[in-house]
């Protein structure tokens, strides 16, 4: 089966911020993402409630992990 899991822009907002990382909740309550600060590119100091955008596809299972 061919799946067109294209990369699309997704928006969300910062719900948690530490000196190390940010936690992002995707709009539509479609999950959360936590990344270290250095993976966040920002023109100002990030704050809780700020909107973020990234590009991602659906997540595809690749193997059973063993």
């Amino acid at each position: 089966m061919e799946i067109n899991a294209d990369v699309r822009p997704i928006k969300g907002k910062i719900i948690e911020l530490t000196e190390r990382d940010v936690k992002i909740e995707f709009y539509g309550r479609m999950g959360m993402l936590r990344v270290p600060l250095r993976m966040l590119i920002c023109g100002k100091r990030p704050e809780v409630g700020d909107e973020v955008e990234l590009k991602m596809s659906y997540v595809i299972l690749k193997s059973d992990g063993r």
């Binding site: 600060l37 250095r38 966040l40 590119i41 920002c42 023109g43 100002k44 100091r45 990030p46």
Partner: peptide, 12 residues
């Protein structure tokens, strides 16, 4: 010399 320069968080 060797210059050490930090990488801050915000672009500005």
């Amino acid at each position: 010399g060797v210059v050490f320069v930090g990488s801050p968080q915000v672009n500005e």
